[in-house]
Amino acid sequence: MSNIHKDYIGSKFGMWLFLFTEILLFGGLFILYSTYLHKYPAEFHLAGKELNVYFGGGNTVALVTSSLFMAMSISAIQKGDKRLAIIFLGITLALAFVFLINKYFEWGAKFHHGIYPDSPTLLQRPKGEIIFFGLYFVMTGLHGIHVLVGASIIIYVLFMLKNEKVNKDDFVLLENTGLYWHLVDLIWIYLFPLFYLIV
């Protein structure tokens, strides 16, 4: 019997379970969102109009495109093209930073107008708007942390690609990173309409 055990399916199985738990983590916030939307539909509508659809839309394009490059990076390593895999993954990383920088300006503009949690300006607003912006900062903030974590993992995998620890025959680490990245993307795809479009 050997104590070296590599189980490709097992790794992905575990990763998918982990992704379920991530969805459930955000699920708690989605429950709060739906309850408060039901309670304060008019305030949510007014507050939602204050968000900049172009900022949000731009970020959506950045993330979806980054997911495409992530998938292409996996295809490249499957074909054994290390150089191309690194380039595609590097573009994924760059787009992650585009997203975060964009977010920085978006939040910064809100702060500039005095809209941040517990701010005097915000507390003078109707309750539903306080809650809307509260959820906005918490949900996009938690998502932003996920982008940051994802970007850190991508940097790690870039080094693993370079050292050929991730290669044509053993690329499950890259594939799982891709799964995580697509999840980060997916959650944003739900956050974007909830805050910028449908209310």
Partner: peptide, 21 residues
């Protein structure tokens, strides 16, 4: 357990930033 995760995370941000959820 993820629901516990988000709950304690919310306690934390509520106490730090006073969001008011």
């Amino acid at each position: 357990t993820p629901i516990l995760g988000i709950t304690v995370l919310l306690i934390f941000v509520e106490r730090m930033f006073g969001i008011g959820l």
